[in-house]
Structure formats: C-alpha cells, structure tokens
C-alpha cells in the first residue's frame, strides 16, 4: 500500500480525475450567462436555512435530479453511488488504468500515422499524381458533351456519380430519423412522470417572443432568402451551387420564419406530415429517375431525355429535377434538426 500524502484530495491528480469524471464543472461560475448571486430569502417550503455555499447547492441539485431520474427510470445500476461514496470495485480500477494507457497509445499512433502520411503526399495539382488518371480526363473532356452541364462538377455528381449522391441524400434522411428517435418527446397522456419531464425539457417557455421589429424584418427578408435559395438550386448546372447549398439556404429561411413568428404559425404549413411526404416523394422520384437512366444505359438504349443547349436553364437532362429533389431533402432535414433540438417534435 503506498503512502498517502496529506491533503491528497486537493492534489493535481485528484483534481484532474474529479474533472474527468464529471464531478466538477470548471466553467461553473464563469459561464457567459451569469445568474444573479443574491436569491430570494429562504421560502416557507423548507424549514432550515437554505444551502449556503455553491458546492452545497450543486450537491442538492444533483441529489434532486438523481431523485427525479430514479422516479422516472428506475433505480441506478450502481446502488453504492446513491450514498455518494466512492465505488471500490477492482474491475473498475483495473479497467480505468488500462483505458488511460491504451487511449494515450492509440492517440500517439494515430497522430504519427497522419503526420507521416502528410509528409509523403505528392504536390498539389502535379501532373503525374495518382488522382489524375483517365477518369478525371474523361470527365473534363467529355463532361460538357455527355451531360450538357456547363458546371461539370454538378454534371459529375448528378450524372456520372448520381448513385453516390442518392446515398448522401439517404444519409441525410436517416440522420434526421435517428435524431427523431432519440430526441422526440412523445405526446403526453395522464402519466405524471412523463409530464413532469416534458415540462422540464420545455425551455422555450422563457424565451422572448413576438418581437415586432424582428417580425417586420422577417416579413421582407424571408421571401428574399427563399427566392435566393430557389435560385441557387435551379442554377446548379450553370454556376456553383446545386441542391445541397441551395437546400441549406432554404432551410435557413424557414428557420428565420420560425424564429420570428413562432411554432404555431409555422405549423400551419409545415407539419410532420408535410415533412414525411416531401422527403419520401423527393427520394422516390430520385430513385425512379436514376433507375430509368441505369436501365437505358445498361441496355445500350437511347434515353429519351434531351440534353438541350448548354448554358440554358432547361438543359442537361435529368440534372435539374434531381437538383430540386436534393434541395427539398436538405431543406426539410435542416428544419427538422432545428425543431427537434428545440422542441422535441415537429
């Protein structure tokens, strides 16, 4: 057994371990949102004088929160933690030691591998780089002729490699489904625990709402933003832009409308049903359109879609509808993330 120093709990190692295990919040008291130090005098609900120091307050708050979570979710896995004493389990100690050592080794190995790779990379844009083989040459030389898109980056991602872009749109959809599963607060029934929890999660009660200046400004600005977003989506094959960036701008326009006018007005035209239908229809249309292209291409048929004159809006075959689909999916995803993180639902 090693010799313990005096005042071991305040040594640097113990302070670091306390911070790492989450018992101490270094930012407590220096956060930006400062709460006034003087509170109201102790109310009639509690007999003795209220907790005086911040550490006591924190402990009381942790205790209260633990009690609430125990009500809702059941007893904790480590019953020793309820009393606040440190847990002396041999498996945990060994695991913590091994974990620290392994994590340091892993980080060092990854850093070394990255640095070594970066040093040995070929110069940027060199003519004999492995990336400049016959594939980009084909894209650059016959991109305009085969796809009809002046911006042949868009021609590449929505014509040559449209399947990958389909995967990306699906990833956006899956991501918002996962956030929905994790964050959604179900409609509350008579059950009191869930109602208490829902009420505590609802922090929008305290926000300032109906700011007149913001509403008047949003009245003018939201149409501008939406029109600009539509412009970016439609001009994907002529100038840099396309579905992804245009969808982001459209989503931010919707978020501005939501912030200015509140959830009730936005739910008049954008509910969960609308979200579901729009994303499903967009992805299904993308799938069907590209299936048609695969079918005709694989069987050496002529796809009947005209390429048009390069430089016009209605050109480059299927790229324009696919841009619109991708833009719609991205817009719905951005709006869904925002409302899910703010409200727990749509």
């Amino acid at each position: 057994m090693s010799r313990l120093k005096e005042n071991y709990e305040n040594s640097r190692y113990r302070r670091f371990m306390r911070w790492m295990n989450g018992e101490v919040d270094l930012l407590d008291g220096v956060t930006d949102v400062r709460i006034p130090e003087e509170t109201e005098p102790a109310p009639a609900g509690h007999g003795a004088a209220g907790p005086v120091s911040s550490a006591d307050k924190r402990r009381a708050a942790l205790e209260a929160r633990r009690k609430e979570s125990e009500e809702i979710f059941g007893p904790e896995i480590w019953p020793q933690a309820a009393s606040g004493e440190p847990i002396f389990d041999r498996r945990l100690t060994v695991f913590r030691g091994v974990y620290s050592v392994m994590s340091v080794i892993l980080c060092a190995v990854i850093i070394w591998v990255f640095l070594w790779t970066t040093v040995h990379l070929p110069p940027f844009g060199g003519a004999d780089n492995p990336a400049n083989n016959e594939v980009p040459r084909r894209y650059i030389e016959s991109g305009l002729a085969e796809t009809g898109a002046v911006n042949f980056v868009t021609g590449m991602i929505l014509d040559y490699r449209a399947f990958d872009t389909f995967g990306e749109s699906c990833v956006l959809f899956i991501a918002s489904c996962c956030v929905l599963v994790l964050l959604r607060i179900d409609p509350v029934d008579e059950h009191s625990r869930a109602r208490v929890r829902k009420q505590q999660e609802n922090d929008r009660v305290f926000e300032p709402k109906n700011d007149v200046i913001l509403q008047k400004a949003a009245f003018i600005l939201v149409p501008l933003i939406l029109i600009f977003g539509i412009y970016i989506v439609l001009n994907g094959h002529l100038s840099p832009g396309g579905g992804f960036s245009g969808g982001a701008v459209l989503g931010s326009g919707l978020i501005l409308y939501l912030n200015a006018f509140g959830f009730q007005k936005t739910e008049r035209f954008f509910t969960e049903k609308v979200y579901r239908r729009v994303t499903l229809c967009a992805l299904t249309f993308y799938c069907l359109a590209k299936s048609y292209s695969f079918f005709t291409g694989a069987n050496h048929l002529e796809s009947g879609i005209p390429l048009g004159t390069p430089g016009a809006i209605l050109s480059s075959g299927l790229i324009l509808p696919l841009n619109i689909c991708v833009g719609l999916v991205v817009m719905c995803t951005m709006y869904a993330f925002y409302t899910l993180f703010r409200k727990g639902g749509m």
């Binding site: 929008r204 305290f206 926000e207 300032p208 109906n210 009730q264």
Partner: peptide, 24 residues
C-alpha cells in the same frame, strides 16, 4: 433568443403568458 431563454429560465422568471400561449 436562446441565450435570453436560458437566462430567464435559470432565474425562474416567466415570460408574459400571452407569449407563452402563442407556442403552446
């Protein structure tokens, strides 16, 4: 908006009830 809401929530103040019922 978010910072004001967080601050007011931590101070246990309530916004005006009309404004609250706008969103609920």
């Amino acid at each position: 908006k978010v910072y004001t809401g967080v601050y007011l929530q931590r101070k246990n103040m309530k916004a005006n009830l009309e404004a609250v019922e706008d969103n609920l």
